[in-house]
Amino acid sequence: MRDDLAIIQTLDFFTPIVDDPYTFGQVAVANSLSDVYAMGGVPLTAMNIICFPINTMKIDILREILLGGLDKMREAGVLLVGGHSVEDNELKYGLSVTGTVHPDRVLLNRGARAGDALVLTKPLGTGIINTALKGNLASDDLVEKSIQCMAQLNKKAADLMTKFSTVHACTDVTGFGLLGHAAEMIEGSDVGMVIRSSSVPVFHEIQEFVEMGIIPGGLNRNRKFRIKMVDVGPNCQPWLVDVFFDPQTSGGLLISLPAEDAQVLVNKMHDEGLHDAAVIGEVVTEPKGKIIVS
């Protein structure tokens, strides 16, 4: 728009991953806003997009979804300015979001440089937990933790991140899983990555599900697509490799910035209540285009 102001426009919507309609609204909005945060922008306004089976589902459910979404938008300081609904056999909800960013400060999922460290802001495993939930295998406590994680805005993490002018790349971890999004960050570039498996925040309760084969289809597809770029070292527990390919709903930010700044950022995140944030690895010059999971 101007030399110092650019617009970000996004759209994201999906089918329910939790039973409670209010919670679904919260998660869907946190997920939709995340794209803007990951670009280093500030979301300003949003429009609802909802597909609803009005003939077979109670209107109260629609109301609860929209209320959950609205409350999450208020928390983010985003103004709801309208929306559109259609009748559909399958329920879907999300947002089109408008935000702003300084054109010189747009963060992309590419641009990581050797000497950077990698920061991840939320624990992994929500896709596996959602699959376990479908089979009534997940404990209430674990489901609650997973919901809290998915409904948490990436706003605070993004606010802290954008205070560092040295951030080279950022993406939010969603459908491709940690390794899928990490692979995008270095594909075709002249750098590689080392990810230390024991440093990555995960929901440890899911180990038994992974070993039992309670795994979402997307995880297997992610692994198949990207495993060629990944070298798994002998010290990485095998079940963690699957978790690193787990498709996340409203996952955390994956941030690449100089190592000396990364630990400072993580400490600030811990001070602000983002207790799971961690430095999970480094960007290296060799091997190029590969991710070593140690």
Partner: peptide
Amino acid sequence: DTETAKENVSRAAAS
């Protein structure tokens, strides 16, 4: 009838 189910069932058996 899916690749995923094939892999997951094999893993479940091994577990």
